[in-house]
Design a protein around this nucleic acid. Structure first.
Length: 570
RNA sequence: CGGGGCAUAGCGCAGCUUGGUAGCGCGUCUGCUUUGGGAGCAGAAGGUCGGGGGUUCGAAUCCCUCUGCCCCGACCA
């Protein structure tokens, strides 16, 4: 490809509304342009990246035995009413009517459509298992789109759906996808972790996410240094502290703490630390009353875990200040586990404290040297909090670390949720109708491009992993417009590399060398070859990998060997 | 949804307080010079100042309104 013909505009300045590095670089390198909030056009250079990602995904999905199909992005409401998701899904589902006033939505996912296909096409257990996949545009009307294509409203996703007669087959199909995903993300050159996840709104039971580790990631993931345990923060189990309580010390005292509401204020006022305080959170109960949740001052409530506590209303709702005053008789901020008119659940760590500080259930007062059993009744303890860095791993091996991750893949065992509701059955070997079991498996194609940049960039620009680079080789002739030798040598080298199957971008613009170097560095092509008079005199080409600091001077054979051996495979 | 901010040339910004008919840098185009890390000189094109309404002799500037975009928050106990 000749750069002089490629419609590419690079930017020196960073567009004002790009916050994270991948968004900035994608705009500067001319990969994408914003059309509206959460909607992006992919320009020719950017589309090449997407196509490289798609190629790897297709190859591995096909290798795993899945079959590609293509479903409409626009879907009729009837299917969503059948699965009851027309009502369950919130405003994230983009709904609209056609000219006949019939309801449709722009598909955020395709469980309904594929289940409809399956119930029409699959009649016999002999046709199972089968795995269909597509690479399709989706739309989710996100509350707050951000970070460019990382959290866009319209995005491209590879989604796959497998159908099985029994659990054993589903387990095997799920495992095959797990392995295919690991190969895909490895081939794409991403540093990733798989984590146990909540299966959330889509339904079903087992579920794992694939996260690319990056500081700007929107998900918090937890992993152990002792084994391969990894989980979403919401799923990570906090172990009770080791048994062996210390004996209570001094007697409980009431202290004045005027206008001291937060744990931080309390600690500086009383000169103590959050680990010796407890906070008592009141949340709404299912029966309209309250439930008290007690945590250590340095811990955070885990909403997901709290919603599992019997009696707690879902979704978890904090009691209003008015409700606190009415039921407890004090301002929020001064609540303690004394004589509360509701059930009390303490986190394991809070339940293990001795001589702690807590609210007195009187405005502007706290109590110190409080002890369970002695000053307040013992209560049931449970795992209610988010794990923190340094907690022991729930597997008993190693300690936990917390990192940010970008979710690029997610696999689920859906079971019969959709097939039952939508009547997707096959005849089994006994001639009986059975609901098929389903798995579903997603990969965020567009998000991968951004995630890769978050992991692979420097001050000069993007450093594409070879498998998703828009071109393999950047060929830079120096002063070609006034040196026939340089131009001819570049043309010939271009032809030879092209014949080897390499995708070469030659910068044939009449530009100064600095401009060419800067642009090629910005757009992140893995290999750079410079053709100049100096090198031709010496019989060499100048080669530099995008990650190298200094170039090397190679003969044509050395160059071809090096580039040939680096090819990512076809 | 709640809170805050922004909207002036393709991009980044100034001008607004104190009203007088729009400017800087980058980019783009032309010419000459230059050519190993985002060149220099000279010239040029490009703007409904987000939309609508109002105040005024006169509005980018003041007022009202609409729209778009960005950021923060949704665990204070």
């Amino acid at each position: 490809m000749r750069l002089s013909r490629l419609p590419l505009n690079t930017l020196k300045e960073v567009p004002a509304d790009a916050e994270v590095i991948s968004h900035q670089l994608m705009l500067r390198a001319g990969l994408i342009r914003k059309l509206a909030s959460g909607l992006y056009s992919w320009l020719p250079l950017g589309l090449r990246v997407l196509q490289k990602i798609e190629r790897v995904v297709r190859e591995e999905m096909n290798r795993a035995g899945a079959f590609e199909l293509l479903m409409p992005s626009v879907q009729p409401a009837e299917l969503w009413q059948e699965s009851e998701r027309w009502n369950q899904y919130g405003p994230e589902l983009l709904r609209f009517k056609d000219r006949h006033q019939r309801d449709f939505c722009y598909g955020p996912t395709h469980e309904e459509v594929i289940t409809d296909i399956a119930r029409r096409e699959l009649k016999s257990y002999k046709q199972l298992p089968v795995n269909y996949y597509q690479i399709q545009t989706k739309f989710r009307d996100e509350i707050r789109p951000r970070y460019g294509v990382m959290r866009a409203r319209e995005f491209i996703m590879k989604d796959a759906y497998s159908f099985h007669l029994d659990q054993e087959s589903l387990d095997a199909g799920y495992q095959a996808m797990f392995e295919a995903y690991s190969i895909i993300f490895t081939r794409l050159g991403l540093r990733f972790r798989t984590v146990q996840a909540d299966s959330g709104a889509i339904g079903g039971n087992a579920s794992q996410e694939f996260h690319v580790l990056a500081d700007c990631g929107e998900d918090t993931i937890v992993f152990s240094d002792g084994d391969d345990y990894a989980a979403n923060l919401e799923m990570a189990e906090a172990l009770p502290p080791p048994a062996g309580k210390k004996k209570p010390g001094a007697d409980m005292q009431l202290v004045d703490t005027p206008a001291v509401r937060s744990i931080a204020e309390l600690c500086s006022f009383l000169n103590t630390d959050p680990g010796h305080c407890i906070k008592t959170l009141l949340v709404d109960a299912e029966d309209g009353g309250l439930v008290a949740l007690v945590l250590r001052g340095d811990h955070e409530l885990n909403v997901f875990k709290a919603e599992k506590i019997p009696g707690v209303r879902e979704p978890l709702t904090m009691a209003t200040a008015d409700k606190v005053r009415e039921n407890i008789g004090c301002e929020p901020g001064f609540i303690g586990p004394f004589d509360l008119p509701c059930p009390i659940h303490a986190d394991h760590s809070a339940a293990a404290l001795v001589d702690f500080v807590c609210g007195a259930n009187e405005t502007d007062k706290h109590r110190v040297n409080v002890n369970w059993g002695r000053d307040v009744p013992d209560c049931v303890s449970a795992d209610l909090r988010n794990v923190i860095d340094g907690d022991p791993s729930p597997t008993g091996k190693g300690t936990l670390s917390i990192a940010r991750g970008i979710e690029v893949g997610h696999i689920f065992k859906l079971g019969d949720k959709y097939s039952s509701m939508m009547n997707a059955q096959v005849l089994d070997a006994d001639g009986k109708n059975r609901a098929m079991l389903m798995g579903c498996y997603g990969i965020g194609i567009t998000r991968i491009a951004a995630a890769a940049i978050e992991q692979n960039h420097d001050q000069r620009g993007i450093i594409w992993p070879p498998a998703m680079a828009p071109f393999d080789v950047a060929l830079i002739p120096i002063n070609q417009h006034k040196s026939d030798r340089v131009r001819d040598a570049a043309d010939q080298l271009y032809a030879e590399l092209d014949a080897m199957g390499l995708q070469v971008l030659v910068d044939d613009r009449n530009a100064r060398p600095g401009v060419k170097f800067a642009d090629m560095d910005l757009i992140g092509i893995p290999h750079r070859v410079v053709v100049a008079e100096k090198g031709l005199d010496a019989g060499t080409f100048e080669y530099k990998n995008r990650r190298d600091d200094e170039p090397r001077h190679l003969s044509i054979d050395e160059l071809k060997d090096l580039l040939g051996s680096s090819q990512t495979g076809t």
